[in-house]
């Protein structure tokens, strides 16, 4: 059960139960919808971007604990970031959850997001951990929908 505890860490369970920024900012300037057709998870990301900075960000949708906590923790983290910084963080995060076993990640630089490191032991759940991230990236790039397929 230890790798399950590694996956379902207290922080993840907390953000699943009480997701942060689970709302649509009134002044949002872009949005995108993400679907995981495999399990039916869906999330809509909203962001308020001013002068290349993410002033506000929120999400709505329904999903498993991993995808809900991923959306919640991501929105907490990226608020106030520039779009460029977000894209860099996206790559680091993606590496964190997909790096093969034994390969070094930059978990220590990711702060709270490091709780998702356990996901890489569960390849079937990578899409859950990355759905909100892909969706926000698409919203910021002017896209409107993404799917994980």
């Amino acid at each position: 059960m230890s790798d399950l505890r590694e996956l379902y860490q207290t922080t993840i369970l907390d953000h699943n139960r009480n997701p942060r920024n689970a709302r649509r900012p009134v002044d949002s300037t872009c949005e995108a919808r993400g679907d995981n057709p495999l399990c039916g998870d869906q999330v809509t990301l909203y962001a308020t971007v001013e002068d290349g900075t993410i002033r506000d960000v929120g999400f709505e949708g329904s999903g498993c604990a991993i995808s809900t906590a991923a959306a919640s923790l991501m929105t907490e983290r990226v608020k106030g970031m520039s779009v460029e910084e977000f894209v860099k963080l996206f790559d680091r995060y993606h590496e964190l959850v997909t790096a093969p076993h034994g390969v070094e990640t930059h978990a220590s630089e990711l702060g709270k997001l490091a709780v998702f490191e356990g996901v890489r032991e569960f390849p079937m759940r990578v899409k859950c951990a990355t759905l909100a991230w892909h969706t926000l990236r698409s919203a910021l790039a002017g896209g409107d929908t993404v799917t994980t397929e």
Binding site: L4, L7, Y8, C39, D41, G63, C64, A65, I66, T68, F122, M124, R125, C128
Partner: peptide, 8 residues
């Protein structure tokens, strides 16, 4: 508990 988490 979401179905997907139960599955895992």
């Amino acid at each position: 508990i979401h179905a997907h988490d139960l599955g895992t």
